[in-house]
Structure formats: C-alpha cells, structure tokens
Design a binder for these strands. Structure first.
Lengths: 243, 243
DNA sequence: CGTGTCCTTGAGCTACTTCAATTTATGTGG
DNA sequence: CCACATAAATTGAAGTAGCTCAAGGACACG
C-alpha cells in the first residue's frame, strides 16, 4: 500500500535484526542495562563530550539544537531500535531529549569503535547507517528549502505512516510529539502547523482525534500533497536541467 | 584570524594529505586519468546507478536535486580535493554539475569499496568523511530552518572565507557560483540574494567587485551576522532548555 | 561594438509569522 | 467520578520577510 522508496524517516532503524542472531550493531547494546528516561528529560547535552552512543529501546527521542534566544531546531526524531550519535566524532552536536517516557541503552564510544573496527560484519552496517543518516539529512534539506507548509506537514505524516513499527491501528496514526516539536522539526510555527492540520481535515485527507492521534482518511492524497515526486510517479522530473 | 571550529563547508576536503605519501582516500583517485568537465556540464545524474565516485581535482561542483517544476535545491558545493558520492549506497541522489570548468577523477564504487574494506588506514578516513558530511548537512538544516536571509548569506560567505585553499587575495574573496546557485543553496531567490548583498555593502561589511568577487571589509561583523553562536562567543546558548 | 545573459532595483503580493483571545485536552485533589 | 486548574491547541486579526513580476543596467561573449 505505502511505498516510499527511500528511508522512512530521519533516523534509521539499526536494530530489529538483533533477532537474526547475527552480530549486528544493535547487539552491541544488548549487554548494557536499560535506563529509564521520563518524557522531557535530556539524554545528552549539546557541547558535551560524546562519550557514549545510545540506542532507543522504547519511546521517542528528539535531537535538537538551540541557536540564539528561543530558536530551536529539531534535526531528527528517533524511535525504538534507532542508534543515536553514530556520526559524532568528538562532542555532541545536539541535545537529545525524551519526547515520551523512554527506555534506552548506552555503550561507550570507545568500545563501540573497537567492536566496529574489529568485526567485519558490523562495519558495513555501521557505514550503511552513516550513509542513510546523510541521505535523510539531505531529504530534510529539500523539505526545509523548497516545500510549503502543507507539503512539509504531509511529508512528516507520510514518514510517520511508513515507519516500520508505526503505531497505525486501523487507520489511526499515533503522533507522539506535540505541536511545538512538529513545528521545530518542520521549520514552522505551532500556529501554522495547527492551521494546516485543520485545512487538511476540511479537505478530508485526515481527521485529528485528540492531540496525539490522526485518522488517515486518504493516504494516497496525503502522499501526493507531500510534494515527493518519486513516491508514486517514480521518476518524473529527474534529468531535467534548469538554465 | 578566522576561527570557525566546525567544518568549513558542506563538503569535506578529503585529499590534500595526498602529499603526506600515506595511503589516503585521495590517493585512490591518483591512478585514474583526469577528465575535463566544462562549466555547466553534468558529471552524474540523479537517479542513475552510482557506479563511480568522483574527486574534484580543480574547479567547483554543485550537487543539486530537482523537485517539481522548476524547483531546484543545491545541497552542497564541492571544491578541489573533495570526494563526491561517498555516502551513496546504490543510486545517485543528486545531479552533480560543474559550476566552473573542472577537472575530475573517478574510481568505480566497487574498487573503492574493496580498497576501503581492505585497508585499515583508509577506513577511519572514510568514516570520518561520512561523519563530517552528516554534520555539514545538519548545519545546513539549521540554516534553512531558522536563519533569515542576511544570516544565511553571511554564513555562506563566512564558510567560503574559512575554506582551506579559499581564494582570498588580500581581502578579495572569489565567488565562483552565480546568484541563482547561491539562492538555490540558501533557500532564497536571486532577488533576495542580490538585495541582501546590497544591504551588507551599504553597512560596510563587504563590497562587491564585479559579479564574482567580494571584498571583505569587516570579517568580524560578517561572522557575527551569520548567527552562528559558537563562532566567536564559544558556548552561549547551549544547555538552555525551552519549555 | 553589439547581443545575450546575468544582476540589480522597484513595486506589489502572499504565505507565513506574531500577537492575542478562546477553546479543548489533560491531570489532580476533593 | 467530577470540578477545577493548568497546559496545549486552535482560531482570528494584523504585520512582515521574502517572493513574484517587471523593467533597467552591467558584464562577458562573439
């Protein structure tokens, strides 16, 4: 039914194949204990030495950067299975905060690097993770650079829908984050996010049910409105040179 | 004098240490012949199978994506020494075009991966490259998400200035790309770019000399106007939690 | 020296923001 | 379990940064 061909979301789920028994990135976290992080609490701080990597076991985490007074950018959301901090070299370039109550595991960067350096099976997965993060970041650059409010919101919702493990129960999509989170992720204001949802509702694309659930009425239409050409019409505008 | 602490620009110079004699990523391209690409011509196309990686030997290259009719996003500029396509897994996610007359080298993805997989010295450099690309992409997300026209342009110019090998001859900075390129990179229109330059000139921050050169009158001020907190005042707004 | 392209400047417009007032959800204590 | 309190979300009205459209000017090419 849904067929976004590239990665579904900013972060990239790295685990899930723990079950495969094989030595996967996710398995590196298996030996460490689970920590509980209540909603709103920080996991790590921008500017601090990145001594650990984290894996989300349960819940949703946001990565954010604060620039100037009151300006916040959310660069990614991370879900169960995702690894946080893979691309960091020395310091955290973001503050990671729990959006919902979370469970996480951590491993030290040192031992992570040692394991990845040693194990020939882990390395491709690690590299693949880095590549996908970059691809996701580029997609977000396109969104922030050229999409209008409606396209941004539809893209966001479409990404949520097509996440593996997405909380979709008979057309009801769980939105774990609040409007401010969504706004800061999409480069908009809460008001614009709110108004855009209302507009989509009036057009029978979706139907908000409470603050944290959306009934997806017309997924097809939603995807069309996301302004992602390749999501349905495959390649239309590739190889079209401007100027 | 200049002191941007993070990477100077979107792409990350990977070579330059060819001279070190050591086996570096750049050295992988040494054995292949130099190709000449005239300004405006494409090096690879979005959607095509990414069978090669490229290294810029001379000139400037832009990576761009076309979305919808007439909407173009430039995700990065690449300069001499930079590697293009490091983070690609299968297909090109961008069209690479020469901004100026260029010289490039290419290696096949296959042999690149083999070499990197084999050589323990190359791998950290490769991973480091991937990490830096992601970091650069995140910086660009912040720019596109929260910065106004003036901050965007100042950030852009400051990045150009602090590039290693930057073409700065006694305060005169070479701008190889045209206004449309700058606009599509910064998420603005040519008109806004033009007006913003005029405004900065009237405030004695810089002085345009022809279409492709800027005299940097007040670098300090330029950096301040770029809205990058950590560029001079170190950490001011870190660890400030909203909400 | 002319011609085409790129850049600049102006004037009006619009999508989104800002500020402010309600309305709706969520959680708490009686 | 309900009434209340507080935070979050919605809606409205007014403001604005940047866009669009259009014209004039500068640069680079033959």
């Amino acid at each position: 039914m849904l067929m976004q061909n590239r990665q579904a979301f900013q972060p990239v789920e790295a685990a899930t194949d723990i079950a495969r028994g094989g030595r996967s990135l996710g398995s590196l976290f298996q030996m460490s204990t689970v920590e509980v992080v209540p909603a709103g609490k920080a996991i790590c701080w921008e500017g601090d030495a990145a001594k650990h990597l984290f894996q989300v076991v349960e819940g949703v985490v946001r990565l954010q950067r604060i620039i100037g007074e009151g300006r916040r950018v959310i660069t990614a959301f991370h879900f169960a299975g995702d690894v946080i901090g893979a691309f960091l070299q020395s310091d955290f370039l973001f503050t990671a905060e729990a959006v919902t109550d979370c469970k996480i595991r951590r491993v030290s960067r040192k031992s992570f690097n040692e394991e990845v350096g040693r194990c020939d099976l882990l390395r491709p997965e690690y590299i693949s993770l880095l590549c996908k993060e970059t691809v996701a970041a580029h997609d977000q650059m396109v969104l922030l650079s050229k999409k209008n409010a409606e396209e941004r919101l539809c893209t966001f919702i479409a990404r949520l829908v097509s996440r593996r493990n997405a909380e979709v129960h008979k057309g009801l999509l769980r939105i774990p984050m609040n409007r401010q989170d969504i706004a800061d992720y999409l480069g908009l204001t809460i008001e614009t996010v709110s108004r855009t949802i209302t507009k989509l509702a009036s057009r029978n694309v979706l139907l908000p049910e409470g603050r944290h659930d959306l009934r997806i009425v017309n997924l097809r239409r939603l995807q069309e409105l996301s302004g992602n050409p390749d999501d349905f019409s495959e390649k239309t505008c590739h190889s079209v040179s401007l100027h």
